[in-house]
């Protein structure tokens, strides 16, 4: 049988999916053993047991100075920034996406401008943000928003343009105004696409968040990782990276679940 026609059974597929994860853990454990055999005080690949122990401490022990558990404090700070930045970008993206997708005049006026803006590497404007907004929360939220907004506008205006022309014409023949077509046809038609687009933009959003936190912050997941890097504290960095990965996964999963539940008509329709 051809390889392209050989499909794993469900149970085998699960085992296959686990192999890379297990392989990575084993590779780490072996590497760690080898290094610590040569130098028991090795900091680069601490023993897995040591990492787990450290993770437990990070999640439970309050900081001596603030009395707060740093992991939770960092998580809260980062998620607020991420939520504000992405939320702002989604609102702007949806608004402009609808305008550009639906109104030829807005499209003529804005589409080339947005296309140009989207070519600017967001990290290159980070210094400008720090100068304009200072080193506080605003510049970090702004970086995330600036980083993903052009993508969201372009993606959503494209989705609006992809709404079947038939539907827009039908609404017109029923007497709908431009505003009604925007709010009652185009908006609900692209809302599921908005969630998809936001899911896609979360990867870059995390990147911008961590970059901004690494440069100027007093708390946050990215801040912590870059802070402890000076002490080669892999036992802190690794749990933090795992935690960020988990958060990213959980947010994506939640958005997908929300989309499924809220947009039953799409699930039945096209997805």
């Amino acid at each position: 049988m051809r390889m392209i026609n050989r499909r794993p059974e469900r149970s085998i597929a699960i085992v296959l999916a686990m192999i890379p994860f297990v392989a990575m853990l084993i590779a780490y454990a072996v590497g760690s053993d080898v290094r610590r055999a040569a130098n028991p005080a090795d900091k680069l690949l601490p023993a897995p047991s040591h990492v787990v122990e450290s993770a437990g401490r990070l999640a439970t022990e309050p900081d001596k100075r603030s009395g707060e558990v740093l992991l939770w404090r960092d998580t809260r700070a980062s998620l607020v920034r991420l939520g504000l930045g992405v939320g702002l970008a989604a609102a702007i993206g949806l608004g402009f996406g609808l305008l550009i997708g639906l109104l030829p005049i807005a499209r003529a006026a804005l589409a080339p401008f947005i296309a140009t803006l989207s070519l600017i590497p967001p990290l290159a404007v980070l210094p400008i943000l720090f100068i304009v907004f200072g080193l506080g929360e605003v510049s970090k939220v702004a970086l995330i928003a600036i980083g993903v907004t052009p993508f969201l506008i372009r993606d959503l205006s494209q989705r609006v343009l992809e709404i079947p022309q038939e539907m827009i014409l039908k609404a017109q023949t029923l007497g709908a105004s431009s505003w009604q077509i925007m709010t009652r046809v185009a908006l609900p038609q692209v809302l599921p696409r908005l969630i998809q687009a936001v899911r896609l933009s979360l990867g870059p959003a995390w990147l911008f968040l961590i970059a901004a936190e690494a440069i100027a912050a007093t708390e946050g997941l990215g801040y912590r990782i870059f802070l402890v890097r000076r002490y080669l504290a892999m036992d802190v960095i690794l749990p933090y990276v795992a935690w960020i990965t988990f958060l990213a996964f959980a947010i994506d999963w939640t958005l997908r679940a929300v989309s499924r539940k809220a947009f039953r008509w799409v699930e039945e329709d096209r997805l």
Binding site: A171, T173, A176, F263
Partner: peptide
């Protein structure tokens, strides 16, 4: 405009509205 009703081969109803809401929307529009 409202003088002209139209039905195409496909996409002639609003897929995000229930069957009943499709008819109510006709009145609302």
């Amino acid at each position: 405009d409202r003088d002209r009703g139209v039905v195409f081969q496909q996409y002639s109803v609003f897929s995000h509205m229930t069957v009943r809401d499709n008819l109510i929307a006709a009145e609302e529009f």
